[in-house]
Design a protein around this nucleic acid. Structure first.
Length: 363
DNA sequence: AATCCGGGGGG
DNA sequence: CCCCCAGGATT
């Protein structure tokens, strides 16, 4: 019987192409890999922390956070025993704060309910909060040398070009297809280095715009390069435009004190500190919005001034911000539950979302 | 399958 | 201005 149709997946890989990719990519990686802080050893804890930080975040942004984080929490026990506020504080400014909460929760799970070791099998590690298919593969292959794919955005872009695949890389079925390709491609020897080599190639050579194919170690077996379509790949559907939202931020003051607001535990900037923030309907006047609120809540405002304006961009939401300073006659009125009087000292203690750091800078 | 969740760097 | 980054959780 010919075995041509016995594979579950379409036969995307030619044998010689696969071998060339393995050989050339590993050789290139050994010569060109960047010296990154989490590449100094294979401590699963450090690999884990780095991979969580690197989710949707560039290497250059992560480096200083990683170094401070490891300094502050050198081991998984240190992390598990730390209060959550400290973990969030170490994440301040990095974004996607649920990553920090999930990392902390998983550390506690491992240390207090597990054996203190990060699991080395895929099924167990996938149960941990914040670890999905990619991160599981990255930890298992890099830290434990397991032959498990780690398909991220870089790898999908590289595969789209190497094999001239026109699948939309934003669709969830495409990632499964890419993982099955990676399964066939990943070598027994050095699976961790191979996974990192694919990502490193995507970061340094096979870049989203104007890839430097002339320096590419696998150019000779790249289908997109051969067809001259590398600039057209990968294919992706256009993202939905972000929501435009006008907001007004209240900066309430009494002498050297100001009011902070703890954001809700769910949603945007969950659990971080900021200032009282109100969404405006189209055309609504920010000053009037604050005044009305003070009247309703019997907040004794004496002076209301527009302190500044700025724009802030979240990936899925654009804020046009007016900051209104409210001087109050006296601080002894009842505060909403999430509000708190504080002094300049609390600025360092609490964790502030970046958008609210901009308010401090208006001072 | 769609949507939500930050922030920043580079073209 | 645009893209998209060593993605995962939720619905």
């Amino acid at each position: 019987m010919p075995k041509s149709n016995t594979n579950e997946m379409p036969r995307l890989l030619k044998q010689d192409q696969a071998q060339t990719i393995q050989r050339e990519l590993l050789a290139w990686y050994n010569k060109n890999k960047r010296n990154l802080p989490w590449r100094q050893n294979k401590d699963p804890y450090k690999i884990w922390v780095s991979e969580i930080m690197l989710q949707q975040t560039r290497v250059d942004s992560v480096i200083p956070y990683f170094q401070r984080f490891i300094e502050r929490f050198p081991s998984i026990e240190d992390l598990a025993n730390a209060p959550e506020e400290q973990v969030i504080k170490a994440w301040e400014g990095l974004g996607y704060y649920s990553r920090a909460k999930n990392l902390h929760a998983a550390a506690k799970e491992i240390v207090f309910n597990g054996d203190g070791k990060i699991p080395s099998d895929r099924k167990s590690i996938l149960k941990l909060k914040g670890i999905g298919s990619y991160t599981a593969g990255a930890i298992l292959s890099i830290a434990y040398g397991k032959k498990v794919p780690a398909v991220d955005g870089n790898v999908m872009r590289v595969f789209s070009r190497l094999f001239a695949l026109a699948d939309d890389i934003h669709s969830s079925s495409t990632r499964k297809k890419m993982e099955s390709i990676a399964e066939q491609l990943i070598p027994e020897e050095n699976p961790g280095d191979f996974n990192q080599a694919l990502m490193e190639l995507g970061a340094l050579i096979c870049t989203p715009a104007s890839p430097t194919c002339l320096f590419c170690p696998v150019r000779s077996v790249c289908d997109a390069y051969e067809q001259g379509i590398e600039e057209q790949l990968p294919r992706k559907k256009k993202a939905k435009p972000p929501v435009q939202q006008d907001v007004v931020i209240g900066f309430f003051r009494y002498r050297e004190q100001f009011i902070g607001e703890k954001r809700p535990d769910q949603g945007l900037l969950a659990g971080l500190w900021g200032f009282p923030t109100f969404e405006l309907s189209p055309g609504e006047d920010p000053l009037q919005k604050i005044k009305n609120f003070c009247d309703q809540k019997q907040i004794p405002g004496s002076k209301y001034i527009i302190k500044g304006k700025f724009k802030h961009v979240f990936s899925h939401r654009h804020w046009k911000v007016d900051v209104v300073q409210v001087d109050v006659k006296h601080p002894s009125f009842s505060l909403p539950a999430t509000w708190e009087w504080m002094g300049i000292g609390q600025k360092e203690e609490k964790t502030w979302a970046n958008v609210y750091q901009k308010v401090f800078k208006l001072e």
